[in-house]
Amino acid sequence: MHPLPAAYAQHLLRDRRRSAHTVRAYQACAERLMSFLQDHWGGPVTVERLARLSAADLRAFLARRRGEGIGNASAARELSAVRGFLGWAAPGSASPRVRGPRVKSGVPRPIAPAEVIALAEEVADEAAAAWIAARDWAVLLLLYGAGLRIGEAMALMGAVLPLGPTLRVTGKRAKTRIVPLLPQVRVAIERYLSLQPWGVSPNAPLFRGAKGGPLAAGVIRRSVRGARARLGLGERTTPHALRHSFATHLLGRGADLRALQELLGHASLSSTQVYTAVDAAYLLDVYRHAHPRA
């Protein structure tokens, strides 16, 4: 393997404070590019050659990736990752000007509050033990009640105890924020803690897996997939959709956009503004179903 992608990954992790998931994705993209260029150029890929990368070279790489079956959104992300890698590997050189594919912008699909509760109940009902049922119920209520990303919930440690009216959360790029903790969510977490057999310590994960280790996000995702199928909910009903629902329902009840940005931990307001489109879409859907002339 060429050493540049691994060095780039270290740069992203150490200097840019990117998440482990982002680092893996960007490193994999850099490795694909280096492998392609070695075949494309028929020789070793050096920093000097990267600095002379042409638009035709980059288009050929994207054509290869499209031939492998990736869609417009994935191709656009691939192009963005490649540009970041080239900017780091060959600073000062002009990046090839290649127009990315058009990506249709969508809006997140919120889940109705009753469906959130039904989903959490269904997941809990299928749990193998009472403490696991309490854990899954608490996790899903936390995602909806506080707008957490699932990775943020999994990263909570016993040091957050005792629970109060707010919770300190560490999000993307190690950015911390304070989120309100609803009494119902606090009760759900405390009930789970009273039932789980592993005990609680400040340096241990708050949410445990069946064998006592850290709870993996994939466990919750699989449980939600099964529950949504049994309930007849759409494929977009995911743990992350609970965060979208949190934002949409707050905005629909008059929450300030700046306050919502802080609660969600978005670095820019543009990331939060997507929820104004969600709210408008929801109101239009209600209108169409309720108005006799719609």
Rank of each mutant, 00 (worst) to 15 (best):
G100Q: 03
P183Q: 04
S201C: 01
S270I: 03
A120M: 05
I70L: 14
R253E: 15
T276H: 03
K104D: 12
G151L: 03
E235C: 07
P101A: 10
G106N: 09
F61K: 02
G234K: 07
A216T: 02
R228G: 07
P180M: 06
T248H: 10
T46H: 10
A124M: 10
P96A: 10
W198R: 01
V274S: 09
R173Y: 10
A210S: 08
E152Q: 03
N203G: 05
A138T: 01
A255E: 01
L260W: 12
A56S: 13
S74H: 05
R18Q: 14
A112N: 07
G158N: 07
R293S: 09
S93R: 03
V116I: 03
L257F: 11
L264A: 06
A94D: 08
G218W: 10
S54D: 06
N203Y: 01
R32D: 14
D125G: 07
M34C: 10
D285I: 01
G43S: 11
E262F: 09
I111S: 04
W198E: 03
A247K: 05
S19Y: 08
T237Y: 15
P202Y: 12
S93P: 00
L62T: 03
A159E: 12
A94E: 14
W88Q: 09
M34I: 10
H266Y: 08
V187P: 00
L58Q: 14
V278N: 10
L53M: 12
I132N: 05
P44S: 05
T237G: 08
L119R: 05
D39R: 13
L143D: 01
R17Y: 13
P3K: 14
A134Y: 01
Q273H: 06
A155N: 12
G151F: 11
Y144P: 00
L206P: 02
I220F: 07
A6C: 05
L250S: 07
G84Y: 08
Q38P: 00
W88M: 07
G252M: 11
A259R: 10
L4W: 13
Q38V: 02
V169Y: 00
A56C: 08
E190M: 00
A247F: 04
A294M: 10
R186I: 00
A118P: 00
I220N: 06
A25S: 08
Y8P: 04
L50M: 10
L231A: 06
H249N: 08
R16V: 14
F246V: 04
A20W: 09
E68S: 09
R32V: 01
S35I: 04
R65A: 10
P91R: 05
R18V: 02
F207E: 02
T170Q: 09
A267L: 06
R18Y: 14
A128I: 10
A130K: 14
Q10K: 13
A75I: 06
A280M: 07
R230F: 04
A290F: 12
A281C: 04
L182G: 01
L260D: 06
A294F: 12
R99A: 13
L86E: 06
A259D: 02
Y282W: 15
A146Q: 06
N72H: 15
T176W: 04
H11V: 02
G67L: 11
S95I: 13
R168M: 06
T166Y: 03
A51C: 12
T22S: 09
G199W: 15
R222E: 14
G265L: 04
Q273I: 08
R32K: 11
M34E: 14
